[in-house]
């Protein structure tokens, strides 16, 4: 996986890593995630239920977007380099939204003998509205 080898000395605060742009979220995507994740909350797949709970329609699992952010990270570094990964679910990701995942280096630091960087993470929809906001700490050689 040499293409995933990032070097601490080559990284600068402010660097952006390649974004990940997803296709519009379909009901099929949500049904697959419902089954695969074990999150069987009907609010994400059953529009009758969603409406009865006061929502206009079904909406995406927050953890689906977090999984996409995870793909963004593991596209860039091997997973074993990830020390921590966290998000806040800022606003609801709606059905048909087209999500882009982004990451930017915000800090370089050392813990013990390990070089680490912090990435600011975000997902936004086709209008640029923030959906998830978070950060990850990555160990680099």
């Amino acid at each position: 996986m040499t293409e995933k080898l990032q070097r601490f000395d080559d990284i600068q605060v402010g660097d952006q890593i390649a974004s990940l742009k997803l296709p519009p979220i379909s009901r099929h995507t949500l049904a697959l995630y419902c089954g695969a994740s074990g999150d069987h909350n009907p609010i994400h797949v059953d529009s009758d239920f969603a409406k009865s709970a006061g929502m206009p329609d079904v909406f995406a699992h927050g953890m689906l977007s977090m999984a996409w952010l995870g793909r963004l990270l593991t596209n860039w570094v091997p997973q074993e380099a990830i020390r921590s990964f966290g998000v806040r679910f800022v606003s609801i990701t709606q059905i048909h939204d087209q999500i882009t995942c982004k990451a930017e280096v915000t800090e370089k630091f050392t813990v013990g003998h390990e070089n680490r960087i912090r990435l600011a993470l975000s997902t936004c929809d086709q209008q640029g509205q923030a959906k998830l906001s978070g950060d990850a700490v990555i160990a680099l050689q």
Binding site: N41, I43, A53, G62, M63, M66, Q79, E80, I82, R83, S84, F85, G86, V87, R88, F89, G134
Partner: peptide
């Protein structure tokens, strides 16, 4: 009541694969 619940935040700290 799970109709009233939202997932606010989620984070992970990793030690081993």
């Amino acid at each position: 009541d799970y109709r009233k619940l939202l997932h606010g935040e989620q984070s992970f700290t990793y030690h081993e694969m």
